[in-house]
Write a protein that binds this DNA or RNA. Sequence first.
DNA 1: CCTTTTTATCGAAACGTTTCGAAAGATTAC
DNA 2: GTAATCTTTCGAAACGTTTCGATAAAAAGG
Lengths: 323, 323
Amino acid sequence: MKMTGIKDIAKAAGVSISTVSYALNGSTKVTEKTRQRIVQIANELNYIPNAAARTLKTRKTHIIGAFLGDYSGSFYGELLKGINLELSNTGYELIVCNGPESHRLMTERIVDGGIILGHRFTEEQIMSFADRGHPLTLLDREIIHPNISCVLLNNAMGMEQEMEAIVATRPNHIHLLNGPVGNHDAIERREIVMTRALQAGITVMEWDGNFTKRSGIRATSDLLEDLKDGDAIVCLNDDMALGVYDVLQNTSFRIGQDVSLAGFDKLEITNYTHPKIASVSYSKLEWGQKAAHSLMRLIDAKENGIEKIDSKFIVAESVCQRK
Amino acid sequence: MKMTGIKDIAKAAGVSISTVSYALNGSTKVTEKTRQRIVQIANELNYIPNAAARTLKTRKTHIIGAFLGDYSGSFYGELLKGINLELSNTGYELIVCNGPESHRLMTERIVDGGIILGHRFTEEQIMSFADRGHPLTLLDREIIHPNISCVLLNNAMGMEQEMEAIVATRPNHIHLLNGPVGNHDAIERREIVMTRALQAGITVMEWDGNFTKRSGIRATSDLLEDLKDGDAIVCLNDDMALGVYDVLQNTSFRIGQDVSLAGFDKLEITNYTHPKIASVSYSKLEWGQKAAHSLMRLIDAKENGIEKIDSKFIVAESVCQRK
DNA sequence: CCTTTTTATCGAAACGTTTCGAAAGATTAC
DNA sequence: GTAATCTTTCGAAACGTTTCGATAAAAAGG
C-alpha cells in the first residue's frame, strides 16, 4: 500500500519538493498560479500528509488530550462538548485519553498539551510533565508553574448556599460524606460545611468516601446506625449521594421528610430520583470552553493563568422543609 | 528544551546509534551486558523515545481510536472500560476521538485502527478508510471488507422477549418510536416489533425519532393526541424512553398502569425513574472487550470476522400487568 | 596455528516532511 | 543596456528513529 507523498506530487507537477511543501502550506513564497496547480494535483493524487513526518520536523501534532478520571456518568459529555466547541477552527483536535498507559501520550509528545481532571496523575507526575515543557490545564487542583494554567470550580459559592439551606432546616446532626483525601475540590467543599455547621452549632459526623457511588453505599451502611430523624446527609458529590439514596430506599427513612440529603454536581440523574436530590450546579460546557481556551493561550502565547467557574445551589425536595 | 535522543545515549555509552536502538528494543543482536549498560544510561539521561520518528519508520503508532457518536449518558463508560481491559498488556493504547475533525486521526494514520459506533461516518467514508488499509471494527453496522470486522448486538434476542411481554398485556395500540433512518440496530429492532405486533393483531403507530431524548420528547407531544389508556409505547432506545417519561409526568397518564412503556439499552437511569423502565440489557463491557479483541486480530493476523453480543429483556413496572 | 563459522557492533540509508540559504529569473531604476 | 532589487524556485540538510548489509571480533573446527 504505497501512499502518495509530497515527492510524487513534485514529480507530477515538474517542480521540486520544497515548492510543493510551500504551496500546500499556503506560503506566499510560491506564486498563486503554481500553488493552485499543485493543490489540484495533490487532490487528484489523493494526497494525505504524513503526520509523523510533519511532527518530526515541526514538533507539533496539533492534538490536545483530555485526561479525565474515568467516564462515569453524564458528567464528561458536556465538558468535552465545551472543549470541542472552543477548539473548532483552531486547527487543534481533541482526543480523550483514559487508558492505563495514557501518560505515554503525554511524554512521547503525541499531544501538544493536556487538560487534566481527576486524580489519575500525582502532583509529581504533573510537575514532571510541565518541567519537560508540556502545556497543561488543570481542572481540579492548583499548581503554580509557567507551563500550567488552572480552571477551577468556585466550590465555595454553591456550597455556601447549600449549607445555608441545610442549616435553615435545623438538623440535629449533619453526616458528611467526604471525598478522596487530598482532592482540592473535596477540601474546599468540606471546609465550608465545617465552618457553617460550627457557626450554626450543629455537630458534624464525618464518613470516608472517594466520590464513587460505591463509597456512598458503604458509608451509608456504616452511618445508618447513627442516623436519626431530623438529621441531614451532605455528600461532597452526587455519585455518593446516589449511593445514599439507593441504600435509604430500603429503610424506613424518607428522604426530604425524615432526613435531608444534598449532593454536589447536579448530575442529570438527580432529577429522576424521588425526591429529586438538591445539589450544586455549574456549567460544564463553560468549564470545558474555558479549559480549552486557557490551554490554547498557554500553547500559543505562553501565558498562564487561573480562572474560576461559578457554581450555584439548586434546591430540591430532598432537603426537608425548614421548621 | 533539548530532548535527549538515541544519539546522546550512543555518545555517552561509546557505541553506535544502531547498537543503542537494538539494545533498547530488546533485540538479541546485542549482548546482554551492553544491553543492560545502555538501558541504564538511557534511564539516567531520562530518555523518552520520539514517537514521531519511530512512527515514521515503522508506520505504527500503537494507538487505536474509538470513534463514538457522542458522549451522552453512562453508555460509553462501560464500553470503553471493556476495550481498555482487553487492550492491557498488548502495547496498544486507546484514545477516544469525538472531535469534529476526528477523521483526520484516521486518515493521517495517527491511529493504527478504529472502533466505530454511531452514524458519524458514512458508509462511503468507512469504505474509503478500509480501502486505504485501515483496520476497522464496526459496532453497529455490517460491511464486508477484508479490513473490517463487526461486533454487533443481537437485537432480536432481547426485542423478542420485550415484545412478548408487551403483547401479553394486550395493548389496544402500540406506539413505536423509531431510531435514525438507516441505523442497523433500529432496523433490526423495528422489524421484531412489527412482525410480533402483526402476529398478535395489534396495530402499530410509528413516530419519528433519532435515539435522542429530545426526539423522544418531540414524538411524545405529537402522539399524545392519539394516546389512550391501554396503549403501549415502545421506544427503540432508552434515551427516547426517558423523553417519553418526562413528558408523561406532566399528564394524567400513569406509566405502568394506564400505558406501558419500554425501551432498549437498560441505561442505569432507568432504575431511578418511577416506575422503573423496562428495557433490553446487554453487557457493554463484553462488547468493548470483543471489539478490541476483534480489532487486534485484524491488525496482528489480518483475520476479520463477525460476532454478536447477546441481549436480554429486563422486566420492570413500566409495563402494565397482563390482563 | 590457520581457516571457517558465528556473534557483536557499526555505518549508512531510509521514512516524509519543513525550511534555510543559494540560485535563477523577472522586474525596476538609472 | 547594465546594475540593482525583488520574486520565484530549487537543492540539501535536518528531524530521531529503524534496519540492512558490511565489518570486525570472537569462537569453533581441523
